[in-house]
């Protein structure tokens, strides 16, 4: 399997403080990798480093075998990024937001795929022509997920994608992620949701204080044990 994302002994500093310290992991083509960790563990920082926003102070970070800084446009083109607490434009409708951002990504925004993506995240059709400022948190999150889907990028970096979604929407989302991975897309998602991570991820990395303190791999054809991960996450069992 081709490795699309790789961090090797990666260290990153923000405002002079070391927030990633010797982190190593990789994501292969068609794989779903979930990054678990408490607040401030360094999950979002990891995603930003892959996007080339934060330079590593040591170690190596690669997208498709190249450091992001080497060809930042290529790295970002290969990635669809769903930021933490994604905020699209409140004064635009869902459709307008998607059209704007797709055009920004140099894609041709067309009505049919946009409606299909909004169907996939099950955003009510009557809401799609309304300004996002009138949306609930979960509805806004759905539009942001639709954008990530529409980007048709081979790699998805998702920062807490299910935050704000109701249980039904979360289940649908996990189904969607499995579908995408099955079609060969690679997903690196950040989450606090141990149960969800075990449902959807082929591998889970546990991050604590900027260090990778544990990893879990699903057995062939099966799922990662929620109990074990939960125990490690809660710090009851040294991972």
């Amino acid at each position: 399997m081709k490795t699309v994302l790789e961090a090797r002994d990666l260290s990153v500093e923000r405002s002079g403080k070391r927030v990633l310290d010797g982190v190593s992991f990789s994501v292969t083509e068609g794989e779903v990798f979930a990054l678990l960790g408490g607040n401030g563990a360094g999950k979002s920082t990891t995603l930003l480093t892959f996007l080339g926003f934060l330079p590593p102070v040591s170690g190596l970070v690669q997208v498709n075998g190249k450091a992001p800084a080497e060809d930042i446009a290529a790295a970002r083109r290969a990635i669809a990024y769903l930021p933490e607490a994604a905020t699209l434009y409140g004064h635009l409708t869902a459709r307008e937001n998607l059209r704007y951002f797709l055009s920004l990504a140099r894609m041709r925004p067309q009505a049919e795929p946009i409606e299909a993506a909004l169907d996939q995240v099950s955003l009510q059709p009557d809401a799609r022509g309304r300004q996002l400022s009138s949306y609930s948190k979960g509805m806004r999150q759905k539009v942001a997920i639709a954008l990530a889907l529409l980007r048709e990028a081979p790699i998805l970096l998702l920062d807490e994608p299910t935050s704000g979604l109701d249980p039904v929407a979360i289940d649908e989302f996990h189904g969607l992620i499995r579908l995408l991975a099955g079609a060969g897309r690679s997903v690196l998602m950040v989450t606090h949701d141990v149960y969800g991570a075990c449902q959807v991820a082929g591998r889970i990395g546990l991050l604590r204080h900027g260090q990778m303190v544990g990893s879990f791999t699903a057995p062939a054809g099966g799922r990662i044990e929620t109990e074990a991960v939960h125990a490690a996450f809660a710090g009851r069992v040294p991972a």
């Binding site: 930003l48 446009a73 990024y81 905020t87 434009y89 920004l104 140099r106």
Partner: peptide, 18 residues
Amino acid sequence: AAGRMELLTATAGRAESP
């Protein structure tokens, strides 16, 4: 302030910063 900076920049890539 709206937290859109990274999304905009990442979406645009570097070649076409808006």
